[in-house]
Design a protein around this nucleic acid. Structure first.
Lengths: 146, 146
DNA sequence: GATGTTTATCTAAGTTTCTTATATAGTCAG
DNA sequence: CTGACTATATAAGAAACTTAGATAAACATC
């Protein structure tokens, strides 16, 4: 029989995941928001500053500073938007993509170690829940930019 | 048949959860780390500054500042540690506990809305995975403070 | 096609949240 | 009781934001 979802437990686990993830960026000398911008550019492609401002939920001047910093470090490039000369399209560079991949791999190594200490049954249950968890995240994003 | 866990998908979902959670604190006018300290005190009880320094992974002077700020706002109290006169035990107050509960409830309201838009089968699969996810978090914490 | 409004980004200045370096005071081992 | 260690605090500066306001291109309209 299907058991009803305990939202409070889910909130708790998500909170703990957040606390697990949040302290890792320090290693890279880039702040959480800066890495989040890089992640966005890696996954959804070139973006305007105004689009980044909306998705990262910080102010527009903050995004300008972050992009300037990333540009100095060679991780992104500002290019003109051919369709609108006011706008700037921020592109990730090879070096930037490598930083994102590196972080993803660090987390995978760490999680692989932890997952090996679970039982096979536990791993299967997590696997079975992943599509639903992904849908949850998508619903959040969809309702975020209305 | 039990399907093997895809670590990369799990990393991805956890990352998205982090991005979902991280921007909420701003509402409360308390930073992420400050709220994390409050959460720790609410769940594990009174702690020394040095214990908080270890679990929050910021420097000791940062914890001193955070506790001072929380104390000014009446959310925690510094009390002497009877067993060691150098040390300070930080206790959460009723007002502090209320802030933690309030945040937890905000998240629950938000997640309840989102979860209602999943199918019953999806909710059940998440529910079935919660114990395993909780274990994963516990393994992380256990290996963190060795 | 000049004009007012909106949009996209930048700059400047100040605040918050951290950091490193160092001081102070209590503990503990010999 | 002396030296080394531990727990916290203080001071000064760096990093990551914020608000306010400037600049320049786009767009709507008359």
């Amino acid at each position: 029989m299907a058991q009803e979802l305990s939202i409070s437990e889910l909130v708790e686990v998500m909170g703990e995941f957040t606390r697990m993830n949040i302290r890792l960026p320090a290693i890279q000398r880039l702040s959480f928001t800066t890495l989040s911008v890089l992640h966005t550019l890696a996954t959804v492609g070139p973006q305007r500053l105004s689009e980044l401002t909306a998705s990262e939920q910080v102010t527009q001047p903050a995004i300008t500073q972050i992009v300037t910093k990333l540009e100095r470090e060679g991780l992104v490039e500002r290019r003109a938007d051919p369709s609108d000369r006011r706008a700037v399209l921020v592109h990730i560079t090879g070096a930037g993509a490598a930083v994102v991949r590196g972080r993803q791999e660090e987390r995978m190594v760490r999680l692989t170690e932890l997952a090996e200490r679970l039982t096979q049954a536990e791993r299967s249950r997590i696997q079975a829940a992943l599509p639903a968890l992904t849908r949850l995240v998508e619903l959040h994003r969809a309702s975020g930019d209305e």
